[in-house]
Each structure stands twice: as structure tokens, then as C-alpha cells.
């Protein structure tokens, strides 16, 4: 009975996670909305007594990965034909991105997806290694090595020199 109410309670955190994965706030809200729809449709698969937030984080993360793959496929499909037009477009996009995104957003964008999701769950969402590894379905050692590499890159990108 309280499924929607529980979802509503964790929605601000889900929205934050979506924003930390996505290119910008609008993309983040699109992702969050899609995850909510999926969660509501799949509610029978959630086991009461288990963590709803972990379940929703996992749904959102899987959607985000699928979407990234689809985008890569599309890029490969269209690239040869429109290579010429693409160059100018990509340039505009890069300029726009540089102007509207903050340093932190840009640095997160630069990380490979598997590092970005690990960083987002642990540093932004504040989950334990155990919880994050379970959501990503990877061993703890894999998680920690992604955290080490991702953080090294972020320190570099953000110029967090001591």
C-alpha cells in the first residue's frame, strides 16, 4: 500500500543520483522519470522488506547504461554518412557544454561510465562499498579499484592540488 509513498520519500535522492550520472539537469530528470515509470510497472518484482532505494538505484543505473549503449550504436550507425556535418555539430556541442556546465559536471562527464557510477553511488549518494557493489553487481575489489582510478582522474581534472 505504501509503495508510492516510500518512492516519494526517496525521490529527492533518486533525482540527485540521476543528475550525477547525466549530462545535465534536464537529462537527469528524464532519466529519473523513466526510472519511476519502470519502478511502478515492475513493482511486483520488488520484495517488501528489502531496500527500495537500492532497488530503484539499480533500475535507474541499468536504464542509464542501456541508454548509453543505444546512443553509441546510433553514433556508429550514422557516423560515416554524416561525418562532415558531425564535426561542426560536435564542435558546437563541446563549446556549449564548456559554457553551461560547472567544473564538477564536466569532470564527471569525462569519466568512463563504470567509474562515474561507482563515484556517484559512494561519494554523492554516500552508500557503503557493500551496498554500492551489490547495486552494480560487481565484487568489492572491482568497486574499490574503480573508485581509486575515478578519483585519481577527478583530482587531475579538477586541479585539486594540495
Amino acid at each position: 500500500m505504501s509503495f508510492e509513498r516510500d518512492l516519494l520519500a526517496i525521490l529527492p535522492r533518486l533525482r540527485r543520483f540521476a543528475a550525477s550520472l547525466s549530462h545535465d539537469r534536464a537529462d537527469g530528470d528524464d532519466l529519473c522519470q523513466a526510472a519511476l515509470e519502470k519502478g511502478l510497472r515492475a513493482r511486483d518484482q520488488w520484495q517488501p522488506g528489502t531496500r527500495l532505494d537500492s532497488w530503484m538505484y539499480r533500475i535507474m543505473r541499468n536504464l542509464w547504461i542501456d541508454e548509453g549503449r543505444a546512443r553509441q550504436r546510433a553514433a556508429r550507425t550514422f557516423a560515416p554518412e554524416e561525418a562532415g556535418a558531425d564535426v561542426g555539430y560536435a564542435g558546437d556541442k563541446a563549446v556549449e557544454q564548456a559554457m553551461t556546465l560547472s567544473d564538477v559536471d564536466r569532470a564527471m562527464q569525462a569519466l568512463p561510465p563504470e567509474q562515474r557510477e561507482a563515484i556517484a553511488l559512494v561519494l554523492v549518494e554516500g552508500l557503503s562499498y557493500k551496498e554500492a557493489a551489490a547495486i552494480l553487481n560487481i565484487p568489492m575489489g572491482t568497486l574499490t579499484s574503480r573508485l581509486v582510478r575515478g578519483r585519481g582522474a577527478l583530482i587531475e581534472l579538477l586541479g585539486e592540488a594540495a
Partner: peptide, 11 residues
């Protein structure tokens, strides 16, 4: 810095 950057979204 990362936590602080994204924290306002949850508020």
C-alpha cells in the same frame, strides 16, 4: 566537493 555539488538537488 562532489557531495556538496550535488547535495542541493536532494533539497
Amino acid at each position: 566537493r562532489l557531495a556538496g555539488h550535488f547535495a542541493p538537488i536532494a533539497q
